[in-house]
Simulated scan of single mutants.
Amino acid sequence: MKDSRIAADGLVLLGCGKMGSAMLAGWLKRGLPPTSVWVTDPAPSDWLQGQGVHLNAELPDAPALVLVAVKPQMMAEALPTLREMGNADTVFVSVAAGTPISYFETVLGADTPVVRAMPNTPAAISRGITAIVGNAAAGARALDEAETLLRAAGEVVRLEDEAQIDAVTGVSGSGPAYVFHLMETMADAGEAQGLPRDLALQLAKATVAGAGALAMEAEEDPAQLRRNVTSPNGTTQAALEVLMDARNGFPPLLKRAVAAATERSRELSRG
């Protein structure tokens, strides 16, 4: 990232909460000079103040990229302050939930390159996955720059259409909470079978983390990995007969959960 247009022309980070801080830490670790970064944040953390970036200072006239990481309720106040950067070469990348590309085009101008991104919270340890989609003005260059930047937070995938963002929100955006709840309920179930709470939670967390790591490394898909550990008439099969029940098991439950998150995302985008 040292020799990129971002390093040369500068990066503006509008908002630097947990997600913004996680991404900034990743960029700096990958070699982006702190002097190439301008951060606008009304309540900067102690960590941010010690990074050597331009903090709440006058912004460059034409930075290479602006990452919009403010909360949706702050968008109407914060975004218009950058209107002069619109309709030019500056690429706007938004990780703000529920804010469609059309909003940016209305505020900044229809010819503004805009990339909408949906990350998830494992970005904080560079193990997230982010889906991106751009408007007509963005083109291949803007998407490439956004992907380069967002890879600091983990994997990046490109969508064919902005409408897919809502389903991405339902699967990966909200997905970490589903997995955390799985850990909780596994620990509860282990405790109900006589295990101490701390041990049950340790077993649940390590099992979910290990299974996830195996799924990422293995050549087989998750369905095959499941079959690999399921002996006929064994303990795993007994559990899976409950979990895979067509009426009350994981399949219908997760479909309803993802559908609910997806629909809520659509509602937020409509305002």
Rank of each mutant, 00 (worst) to 15 (best):
D144R: 15
S94V: 05
V37G: 00
P119T: 07
P252E: 03
N56C: 12
G52F: 02
T90P: 01
L108P: 00
L82I: 07
Q193H: 13
G170T: 02
V229N: 06
R256V: 11
V37D: 01
L268Q: 13
I129D: 06
L32D: 00
A261N: 07
L82W: 02
M183N: 05
G86K: 01
A260L: 08
L203T: 11
D188C: 04
L149R: 07
I165M: 10
F180E: 13
A187G: 06
A64T: 09
V208P: 02
W38V: 02
N87R: 13
V107Q: 08
A110R: 04
P176T: 12
A257L: 03
G128P: 10
M216Y: 14
K255D: 06
T207H: 04
H181F: 14
S94F: 12
Q73S: 05
T40K: 07
D61V: 15
E184H: 15
P122E: 01
V133L: 14
H54W: 09
G98A: 03
L11D: 03
M183H: 04
A140S: 14
E58I: 14
T207F: 10
A64W: 01
N228K: 10
A110K: 03
T130Q: 00
N135P: 00
L240K: 07
A110H: 14
L240V: 13
G52R: 10
A239I: 12
P42V: 02
M74V: 15
Y103P: 04
S174C: 09
Q73G: 05
M1H: 11
A261H: 04
T112L: 06
T262S: 10
A200Q: 05
G154D: 11
N248P: 13
V242E: 08
V115N: 00
A62G: 14
G98V: 09
R247S: 02
L13Y: 09
L149M: 11
G234H: 03
L268W: 12
P100I: 10
T90A: 12
T130S: 10
L48N: 02
S21M: 11
E219K: 15
L149P: 01
V242A: 12
H54L: 06
Y178D: 00
T185S: 12
V133G: 06
I132P: 07
E160P: 13
F180K: 06
Q202T: 15
V39Y: 04
L203N: 11
L59A: 05
T262H: 08
G31N: 05
V12M: 04
E147I: 11
M19H: 11
C16K: 06
L149C: 09
V242D: 06
G139F: 05
W47N: 04
E162P: 09
Q202K: 15
G31M: 12
L225Y: 11
L150W: 08
V68D: 03
N87H: 14
G20R: 10
Q164M: 13
F180R: 04
R266V: 12
P119F: 08
F180V: 05
S94A: 09
L59E: 01
N87G: 08
A192T: 06
L243T: 15
L67N: 11
P232T: 07
T81Y: 06
A22P: 00
A209I: 12
P60D: 00
T148Q: 14
L203K: 13
A259E: 14
P63Q: 08
M23R: 02
D144A: 15
A117L: 04
G15I: 00
A22L: 06
R158H: 13
T81L: 12
I165Y: 04
A218V: 11
S4R: 11
